[in-house]
């Protein structure tokens, strides 16, 4: 059985209560998500995917607004460093993530709620693993508000 299902057994919140928004870059992470789907790997059902052309497209304000509107967690998944279709979009995204991670803590938000990571088109397994782990971590937190 998948790691995801195992973790859900021990969780304290029902999947339906959780809202996760994942911004996936079109060229790598979205394809990685497709691969996970095609390989029938587990993906948390509460994951809402937003496809963007590049992780560098995700304005930090969008992440804050997503949290404000009640998402329990936000993921930004990018091509691996050096692999961005637009060369440096994922470095922009990384710098934003670095500052956002530190900012949300100052704003009183558990930094666990924000996740920046890399998923290539071939990494269906990694996509499945990190999304399930992220959902499991969020389920341990009280609802955002």
């Amino acid at each position: 059985m998948s790691e995801c299902a195992v973790q859900r057994d021990s969780c304290c919140r029902e999947p339906a209560e959780l809202k996760i928004v994942a911004f996936l870059c079109n060229w790598c992470s979205y394809a990685g998500a497709d691969k996970a789907g095609g390989s029938a790997l587990p993906v948390p059902p509460e994951l809402s995917v937003v496809r963007v052309m590049c992780s560098g497209r995700v304005e930090p304000t969008l992440v804050l607004e997503t949290l404000r509107q009640g998402a329990d967690g936000v993921m930004v998944l990018a091509c691996h460093p050096g692999d961005c279709h637009y060369k440096e979009g994922n470095f922009r995204a990384l710098c934003r993530a670095e500052l956002l991670e530190r900012l949300v803590v100052q704003l009183g938000v558990d930094p666990v709620r924000f996740c920046f990571d890399y998923v290539s088109a071939a990494e269906g397994e990694k996509f499945s693993r990190i999304t399930c782990e992220f959902a499991a971590r969020l389920r341990q937190l009280p609802p955002i508000g």
Partner: peptide, 23 residues
Amino acid sequence: LDPDGDAGGAGIAALSGAVAAPV
């Protein structure tokens, strides 16, 4: 600058775009 914007989001975007990416 953006009337619906957030100073934190706007500032982070501005500075993150100003530094060189490691090439």
